[in-house]
Computed example of a mutant assay.
Amino acid sequence: MSEERKHDTPDKLVDAYERMLKQTHEAIAKAQHESVPLLREILAKTREHMVELGELTREEAERVAEYIRRDIEDAAKYIAETGQDLRDWWRFDLELMERRLFDMFKLVADQTSLQLAQWAETARQMSLYQTGEITGPGTLVCDQCGSETHFVKAGRIPPCANCGGTRFRRRAEDKT
Rank of each mutant, 00 (worst) to 15 (best):
Thr24Ser: 13
Glu60His: 10
Glu173Pro: 00
Leu101Glu: 09
Met50Arg: 10
Phe105Ala: 12
Gly138Asp: 01
Lys175Met: 04
Ala75His: 01
Glu81Ser: 03
Glu3Phe: 10
Glu34Met: 09
Thr112Arg: 15
Leu86Ala: 07
Met97Ala: 14
His49Lys: 14
Ser35Gly: 09
Arg70Gly: 10
Arg40Tyr: 02
Thr166Asp: 01
Lys12Trp: 07
Arg171Asn: 06
Met1Ser: 07
Glu81Asp: 07
Leu116Phe: 06
Val152Leu: 11
Thr46Glu: 11
Asp174Val: 06
Glu59Lys: 12
Asp93Gly: 03
Ala75Pro: 00
Leu140Cys: 06
Glu60Phe: 03
Arg156Ala: 14
Leu39Gly: 07
Ala76Ser: 11
Asn162Phe: 10
Arg63Phe: 04
Asp110Ser: 12
Lys6Ser: 03
Phe102Leu: 09
Ala109Asp: 13
Ala75Trp: 01
Leu94Asn: 11
Ala31Arg: 08
Leu101His: 13
Thr149Glu: 05
Gln32Lys: 09
Asp74Asn: 08
Gly146Phe: 02
Asp74Val: 01
Phe168Val: 01
Val36Gln: 12
His150Pro: 05
Arg5Asp: 08
Gly164His: 00
Leu43Glu: 00
Glu4Ile: 12
Cys160Asp: 00
Thr9Asp: 10
Leu94Gln: 12
Arg99Ala: 15
Gly54Asn: 05
Ile42Ser: 08
His150Trp: 05
Thr46Arg: 06
Lys153Phe: 04
Asn162Met: 12
Lys175Tyr: 05
Glu98Phe: 06
Glu73Pro: 02
Gly83Arg: 04
Tyr129Gln: 10
Thr82His: 02
Thr46Ile: 08
Leu96Glu: 13
Asp71Phe: 05
Thr57Arg: 09
Asp88Tyr: 00
Arg124Gln: 10
Leu86His: 06
Glu95Thr: 07
Ile28Glu: 02
Ile134Leu: 11
Arg156Leu: 06
Ala161Val: 12
Phe151Arg: 02
Asp88His: 03
Arg87Met: 02
Arg169Pro: 03
Glu60Asp: 14
Met126Phe: 08
Arg63Asn: 11
Asp8Pro: 07
Leu13Arg: 15
Ala31Glu: 04
Gln125Phe: 03
Glu52Ser: 12
Ile72Lys: 05
Glu81Tyr: 04
Leu39Tyr: 10
Asp8Phe: 13
Glu73Ser: 10
Ala76Glu: 00
Gln84Phe: 06
Phe92Asp: 07
Val36Trp: 07
Ala123Ile: 08
Leu114Lys: 15
Val14Ala: 15
Glu62Ala: 08
Leu116Lys: 07
Cys160Tyr: 00
Leu38His: 08
Glu62Tyr: 08
Pro37Tyr: 01
Glu62Val: 05
Trp89Lys: 03
Glu55Trp: 09
Trp119Asp: 14
Asp85Gln: 11
Gln125Arg: 15
Arg91Cys: 05
Leu86Asp: 02
Leu107Met: 14
Tyr17Leu: 15
Met50Pro: 05
Arg170Ser: 07
Lys153Gly: 04
Thr112Ile: 08
Glu55Met: 13
Ser147Arg: 02
Phe151Gly: 01
Glu41Ile: 02
Thr9Pro: 03
Pro37Val: 01
His33Leu: 10
Arg169Ile: 01
Ala75Thr: 04
Thr24Ile: 12
Tyr67Gly: 12
